[in-house]
Each structure stands twice: as C-alpha cells, then as structure tokens.
C-alpha cells in the first residue's frame, strides 16, 4: 500500500533514522533545549516582574519587585475598558485570519501546483508585494480608506486579508511545494476537480503549514499596532488591545508597570491559542508514532 502512496511519518523518521535512542542523547538534547528555553524565557520574566512592581520601581536597575503589587492587574482594567478592546482584537484577528485562509489558500495552490501562463511572473509579484515598506504604503492607502469613509472602522484592517495576504500566499505556496507532485497527480487521475485536490489532498497534507500560516496572521494582527492606531485611534470604542497598550502613557513618561501588566494580559489569549495550535504539530507526531 505504501508503495503507491507513502504515508508521511515525520517524527518516526527521525527516531528510526537515529537508530539507537540512548539515554545520553536524551540528556544532551534536553539540556540544549532547556538552556535555549531559559534564554528565550528570561526577558519575559522581566516583563512579568515589572508587571507587579510599583510605578516607582519600574525600569530601575532593581529587577526583583520590592513589593508585589498584584493590584496592577486590576488597575489596568479600571483604567482601560480592556474587555471591549479584547472583543475588537478578537474580531480583527479572527476575521482577518479566516479571510486570509479563504483568499490565500487557493491562490497559493494555484501558484504551487496549477499550470498556467504567467505563473512565475505572478509568483514574483507576490514576492514584490511584500517589499513596499508599510509606513509608506500607509499614506496613499489612508487617503483611499478616508474617501470610502471607512476610517474609524475595522474594515481597512480586515479587507486586505479578504483579498489575499501576500506573506501567507508565499508561505503556503512553499509548503504546498513540499508535497510531492505524485499525490496531486494521483488525485487528479481519480477524477478529483482542482478544488477537490485542494480540499482532499493539499489541505490535509499541509495542515502544519496551514496551521502555521493561520497562527501567524492571527498573531500578527493581534500585535499589530501601526494599522489599528492609524485606522481606529479616532474612535476609542473600536480600539484593539495593541493600541490600548500604548494608553498608559503621559506627556513625558509611560507607566511601565501597568503597560507590562497589560502586556501580560494581552499575551494570555495568544498563548492559549498557540498551545491549542501547536497541537497540530504534536498530533502529527503521535499519530505517526502509533502507526510507525
């Protein structure tokens, strides 16, 4: 059976290819991972510690809180309607991600596995489209949205994702290319339409890649500050969390302890999402682990 259409059992590949799985190797790999993990974690520990400091201690050389001011997490809710912003952020990121998937997955497939004239040119166009600095593009685009009377709403942020996100198209195309052509050909020979091939072969096989693309567009929009500031700042009721993060500031200085407390809160939903999404990769492993 596998001779015709081999299953892919990635983790098993490493396991088997590695041959013996000695204890020493386990220790070595996990020590490296732990050391790396610690490096990745340290600055975030700083964020968390600052989040519970007093305003007076924030951004001083004393990194350990003198007193643990847990009330900061309450204060940020009092100072800013974070729940409203949370709703806006979820709306922005959710719709943008869904829109990206609907618009970009087919386009990426067409670029990766359909034959048509101008395909290579189109690919270059996708690459080119990522190269205009957003700070410059913002000026003509703002004028456009202003004429449509859509500034102050979430539409200028979301509509671009409904019309194909170039970063995602590029990423997805590259992932689709790693799927051997035989699978696609076999499905076509089965009489699948191209939409069928896409939905039944490409999408399931490229699930980690698609999950990654979805995750990134969600997180990018989640942390996007420039876009929401430009388009929603004039109507506080449509602010996102990322914009709200900048609101703990005064004329001269920022209340960093509150900013960091809010930062931690803003990270939490993203973290939960990541924990769920990364299971897509884990599943790949356990699935093949059982079978392989």
């Amino acid at each position: 059976m596998t001779a015709v259409l081999p299953r892919r059992r990635p983790a098993a590949a490493y396991r088997r290819a590695r041959g013996s799985t000695g204890f020493l190797e386990w220790v070595a790999i996990h020590s490296i991972a732990l050391a790396l993990g610690l490096m990745f974690l340290l600055p975030l520990v700083f964020v968390c510690l600052t989040a519970v400091m007093s305003d007076r201690q924030a951004l001083t050389a004393e990194l350990w809180p003198r007193q643990w001011q847990w009330a900061n997490f309450v204060t940020v809710f009092e100072k800013a309607p974070l729940l409203t912003y949370l709703g806006n952020s979820l709306l922005y990121s959710g719709v943008a991600t869904a829109g990206m998937l609907v618009s970009s997955v087919p386009a990426a497939y067409a670029l990766a596995r359909l034959r048509w004239r101008g395909r290579n040119l189109a690919f270059l166009a996708v690459v080119a489209a990522m190269m205009l600095p957003p700070q410059v593009v913002a000026v003509p685009l703002y004028l456009l949205w202003a004429r449509l009377d859509l500034t102050g709403t979430v539409w200028p942020l979301v509509i671009p994702y409904l019309l194909g996100d170039f970063f995602s198209i590029f990423l997805l195309r590259q992932f689709f290319l790693t799927i051997p052509r035989d699978y696609v050909d076999a499905a076509r020979a089965d009489g699948c339409s191209e939409a069928g091939v896409l939905l039944r072969v490409i999408v399931p096989m490229a699930r980690p890649g698609i999950a990654a693309a979805a995750l990134f567009s969600f997180l990018y929009t989640w942390n996007d500050y420039f876009g929401p500031l430009l388009y929603t700042a004039e109507r506080p009721e449509s602010w996102t969390l990322s914009v709200a993060l900048a609101s703990f500031r005064g004329m001269h200085r920022v209340e960093w302890n509150l900013t960091m407390a809010a930062t931690v809160l803003v990270m939490l939903p993203a973290l939960v999402l990541f924990l769920v999404a990364q299971k897509t990769f884990v599943k790949g492993i356990t699935f093949t682990g059982v079978k392989g």
Partner: peptide
C-alpha cells in the same frame, strides 16, 4: 479623545476627517 499622537492627527488631516481641535506636543 486622548492617546492621539501627531502622526495620527496628520494622517487624519490628510484623509480629510480631522478633529475640530488638535492638541500636540
């Protein structure tokens, strides 16, 4: 409305929908 930085105010003027009164540092 607070937290409106200068770049934002400038963009709003360019877009034709500015506030009636702008305060800038």
């Amino acid at each position: 409305q607070g937290s409106q930085d200068d770049d934002k105010i400038t963009q709003a003027i360019r877009g034709g929908n500015p506030p009636d009164v702008a305060i800038s540092f």
